[in-house]
């Protein structure tokens, strides 16, 4: 693993906290582009956790400090340099009310599928990219299931009569 402090030194807008870089979500494109320019990195995964207020978990890999209710969006970047196959985590904390982040699709094309997944399941709207659609759920699905305030739809043995085939397939 390359030294995270050295990486942070060339990224003016990032600070190191608990073994991860913490950035403002709005600066994601710049920071990720700068990381990519270092060479040997690849976007591996985008994870998102819906954190309630006031329960700061002491992380096994270092504690995440106290924060208000937020979405913890993390870009997991794969360090592919010689002798290292570790993950560099770039975190940002996003407000519940403004669940928005810029898309990094222009930096790494693999972000396309990953961002659509996070949008579908978590409801983070990625701005500045084409066709941000639901990828796993039906197009007419309501809500974002992995949010903590998602209410499980009441299911009986019979599917709802409102099934619309066209909508289920996401248009044509």
């Amino acid at each position: 693993m390359r030294d995270i402090n050295k990486i942070a030194a060339v990224l003016p807008k990032a600070e190191v906290r608990d073994g991860a870089l913490v950035i403002q979500a709005s600066e994601a494109v710049e920071v990720l582009a700068a990381v990519k320019a270092l060479g040997g990195f690849a976007l591996f995964d985008i994870t998102c956790v819906d954190r309630p207020a006031g329960t700061p978990p002491a992380s096994a890999e270092g504690a995440v400090p106290a924060y208000p209710a937020c979405f913890e969006l993390a870009w997991r970047i794969w360090d592919l340099s010689e002798g290292s196959k570790d993950i560099l985590t770039i975190r940002s904390f996003i407000d519940h009310d403004r669940a928005e982040a810029p898309s990094v699709m222009a930096v790494w094309k693999s972000a396309d599928m990953l961002e659509r997944e996070v949008w579908d399941l978590m409801g983070i709207r990625f701005t500045g990219r084409p066709h941000l659609e639901r990828v796993l759920n039906r197009a007419d699905f309501e809500g974002h299931p992995l949010r903590k305030d998602f209410v499980m739809p009441k299911r009986d043995r019979f599917p709802p009569a409102s099934w619309d085939k066209k909508a289920a397939e996401g248009g044509q």
Partner: peptide, 9 residues
């Protein structure tokens, strides 16, 4: 387990 997170590959 203790509170925290793990990312494994």
């Amino acid at each position: 387990p203790a509170a925290g997170e793990a990312y494994t590959m």
